[in-house]
């Protein structure tokens, strides 16, 4: 590890956390990010690279990294694992056809060494769409109960209406805080 990386890790301001938001394409990652930030969500196009936003939430500074989810882009995800405090996995709850793919990609991430310490929040997004699966159904489909390596929670939500987004983020912040900021 180089000098600058060491310094960055050391001086990471207290109450500053890094959150990585991943999921299949069209899951709603960028919409969630923009909704959090109070931005217009009507003109979002598929992400081909990545977005970063820094939000203040309950006295915490959240650096959220949202990386494009198209199949051809997933090999780039690894470049953003470093120093991640929480992984937010976003699921299109109405996309029944791709739940298998969704499960496979998530479980691939969970064995990544650089994500080993990260809190996992699963957003069962698009609850506003008719025919969307409920959070317990998504939990089943993604086999979340088998996860023993990470603290995890599944939260149903709608990025479009904003419903439950803050609940999910509250849990993430609490979980990270109980792990990291009590150790000093």
């Amino acid at each position: 590890m180089g000098l600058l990386t060491i310094l960055k890790k050391m001086k990471q301001k207290e109450k500053e956390v890094r959150i990585l938001m991943l999921g299949l394409d069209n899951a709603g990652k960028t919409t969630i990010l923009k909704k959090f930030n109070g931005e217009d969500i009507d003109t979002i196009s598929p992400t081909l690279g990545f977005n970063i936003k820094t939000l203040e939430h309950r006295g915490f500074k959240l650096n959220i990294w949202d990386v494009g989810g198209q199949k051809s882009l997933r090999s780039y995800w690894r470049n953003y694992f470093e120093s991640t405090d929480a992984l937010i996995w976003v699921v299109d709850s109405a996309d029944r056809m791709r739940l298998g793919d969704c499960k496979k990609e998530l479980h691939t991430l969970l064995v990544e060494e650089r994500l080993a310490g990260a809190t996992l929040l699963v957003f069962a997004n698009k609850q506003d769409l008719p025919g969307s699966l409920s959070a317990p159904e998504i939990r089943e489909a993604l086999d979340l109960n088998s996860i023993k390596t990470h603290h995890w929670l599944i939260q149903d939500c709608s990025a479009v209406t904003g419903e439950n987004l803050l609940n999910g983020m509250d849990w993430v912040v609490n979980d990270i805080a109980s792990r990291i900021f009590t150790m000093d």
């Binding site: 081909l48 690279g49 990545f50 977005n51 970063i52 882009l73 780039y76 470049n79």
Partner: peptide, 10 residues
């Protein structure tokens, strides 16, 4: 632009 290209990271 707001969105970043992957090459920026490299």
């Amino acid at each position: 632009t707001e969105e970043n290209k992957f090459c920026y990271t490299d």
